[in-house]
Computed example of a mutant assay.
Amino acid sequence: MTYIALEEAFAVPAADPARPPWAGNRHRTKTAYTEDWARQLVDFTEYRLPDMDAHGIDIQVLSLTVPGIQGETDAKKAVADAIRANDYLADQIAKHPDRFRGFAALPMQAPTAAIRELRRCIRDLGFCGALVNDHTNGRYLDEPVYEDFWGELESLDVPLYIHPNLVTADNWHVLDGHPELHGALWSFGVEVAGHALRLLFGGVFDRHPNATVILGHMGEMLPFQVSRLDSRYRVIDPVWSLKRLPSEYIGSNIVITTSGVFSPAVLEGAVLAIGADAIMFSVDYPYEATEEAVRGFEATNLSETDRAKIAHLNARRVLRL
């Protein structure tokens, strides 16, 4: 089986955009893992390519690791960091054009500059979309200031991957005293799912019907809430009256990847919930093991047709590879 993996991280050596995502170790990550990640994030040939070859990964779509550009509070610096990170990524892709593709890192602190950088990355650098780490200094992408940005995504016909942000926009009392619940173990998923629902219920996809958002980690588990979203939507008086039921946006405007969720049963459930056409394989390298991602996928009882779609065909279609 040929695989294309969509949520695969890199870092820029010795540069601000490469600030270690475990800085302060709020998420209680064991040192042995952070040391491995530090080596793997800045590498493209010593660890990454052999790992891809060993497990049948044909292409990695690379994106700047967290916190990335969303970790910057100064707008001018964010713009400069994004340009530097994207140029660096383009140089690495040029060395291995048959193995790597790229998602643009964007300075959402400055929406006009973000549009300009998105356009440059797609048209000049050949990237296949963009990735944003959830909120930017507490601002979400349903705000009116980003309306032109969504129009540009539609015009360029590329997807936006919304990834978790290391810095939470809120302090949750329910997590107090339990730092292990911060981050990928729990809070990342519900925070990004909430962001996606802001877009949906804020009418972004009604105003921009051709916009595509990608959510990792099995869609931050939203596919398993579609019936609940519909049933509750029918009984509320919404701020924005949707043109369709909420479930109809998930699987069309919102598509998902398998990154970090390698349970065969969960993947099969997601196929039942939103269809195989809306799901793409991912690993979350180097934070997750490629071997486990492939083994979990190959243990499913999916049809060969659906397996091929999820492994690589959907990515080729969505990203126009």
Rank of each mutant, 00 (worst) to 15 (best):
V158T: 06
W37T: 13
G177S: 07
L200S: 03
R228M: 09
A315K: 09
G219P: 06
K30R: 13
L125D: 07
W22N: 08
Q70K: 05
A85Q: 11
H312D: 11
V318F: 11
L222T: 02
A104K: 05
A270T: 12
K30H: 13
W186D: 02
H135W: 11
T34G: 06
I274M: 06
R317C: 02
L222V: 04
H163T: 01
N171H: 14
A311F: 06
A110F: 04
R123F: 02
L197R: 05
F205R: 03
A110H: 03
W22L: 02
H312T: 08
L197P: 05
S63T: 11
Y146D: 02
T168A: 15
D142V: 00
A32I: 15
T31Q: 15
H178R: 14
V283G: 03
N25H: 09
E180M: 14
V239C: 13
N25K: 06
I4N: 06
N253I: 01
I83S: 14
A265W: 05
R119Y: 06
Q109F: 09
H173K: 12
T112I: 12
A5C: 10
L49T: 12
N133H: 15
E298G: 04
E248V: 01
E298D: 14
P223S: 05
V226G: 07
G202K: 05
I69R: 09
P179H: 07
D98R: 10
T257W: 10
P97G: 09
L106T: 02
P17R: 10
P111A: 12
L156Q: 01
H135S: 10
P50E: 07
S63K: 03
L156W: 10
V66D: 04
V190D: 03
F10P: 01
F262H: 08
W22Q: 08
A75C: 09
R228E: 05
G216H: 09
L319I: 08
Y233M: 12
P179G: 07
S303E: 00
Y287K: 01
L106D: 01
P246A: 08
